[in-house]
Computed example of a mutant assay.
Amino acid sequence: MSVHFDKVKGYLLELGFDIKHEDQKEELFIIDSEDDGIVNLVVDCEDPILVIEMMLFDINTPSQDMFKELLIKNREIVHGAFALNEEGNKLLFRDTLQLENLDLNELEGSINALSLLMGEYYQKLLEFAKN
């Protein structure tokens, strides 16, 4: 187990997140904060970076208009961005941070950006997911 794994775990606990699952071998956590719109957020120590990723919805009917709107919204997101999985059929939120100098405020800011995004943009994401 790396020092980064322990540090990230300590930060997550200090921030009050519910760690639903942790895998020491893979050095990842799955956390929830349903009040903040965060469900099954993967926090993965992939030295030298920390990957923060949450699947938002399956893309059943892709459209140019949807992708255009998501890319425009990316410009407003404080940390992280919308992304697609390798197959292009799932919309994700993804952010990466440097592990070497990661601090509590930086991790909190990244997760808060996701929470803010979910609060502000939830209805539109639901519309996209239903199509």
Rank of each mutant, 00 (worst) to 15 (best):
M1Y: 02
M1N: 07
S2T: 08
V3F: 03
H4K: 10
H4F: 07
H4E: 10
F5T: 08
F5M: 14
V8A: 11
V8E: 08
K9I: 06
G10W: 00
L12V: 03
L13N: 14
E22L: 11
E22F: 03
D23E: 11
Q24E: 13
Q24C: 07
Q24K: 13
E27Q: 14
E27P: 08
L28S: 07
F29V: 08
I30K: 12
I30S: 05
I30F: 08
I31N: 07
I31E: 05
D32S: 14
D32T: 08
S33W: 14
E34C: 07
D35Q: 11
D35A: 15
D35F: 12
D36F: 08
I38H: 15
I38W: 14
V39F: 12
N40D: 04
L41I: 11
V42T: 15
V42L: 14
V43P: 15
D44C: 10
D44V: 03
D44M: 04
C45Q: 05
E46Y: 09
D47F: 13
P48L: 12
P48N: 09
I49Q: 15
L50N: 07
L50K: 06
L50H: 09
I52F: 08
E53P: 14
M55P: 15
D58E: 03
D58W: 13
I59Q: 13
N60S: 11
N60D: 04
T61A: 02
T61W: 09
T61M: 01
S63K: 06
S63T: 05
Q64N: 03
Q64I: 11
D65K: 15
F67W: 10
K68R: 12
K68G: 01
K68A: 04
L70R: 12
L70P: 02
L71V: 03
K73W: 05
R75K: 04
I77T: 01
V78R: 13
H79L: 04
A81Y: 00
A81Q: 08
F82A: 02
F82E: 00
A83M: 04
E87A: 12
N89Q: 04
K90D: 00
K90T: 01
K90V: 02
K90G: 06
L91D: 00
L92V: 04
L92C: 03
F93M: 06
R94M: 02
R94Q: 05
R94L: 02
D95P: 06
D95S: 15
L97T: 07
Q98D: 14
Q98Y: 08
L99E: 09
E100W: 08
D103I: 03
D103G: 06
L104M: 14
N105W: 04
N105H: 05
E106H: 13
E106W: 07
E108P: 04
G109L: 10
S110M: 04
S110Y: 11
I111V: 09
A113H: 10
L114Y: 14
L116A: 14
L117C: 04
M118F: 13
G119Y: 15
E120T: 11
Y121K: 11
Q123F: 11
L125T: 02
E127T: 06
E127Y: 05
F128A: 07
K130G: 00
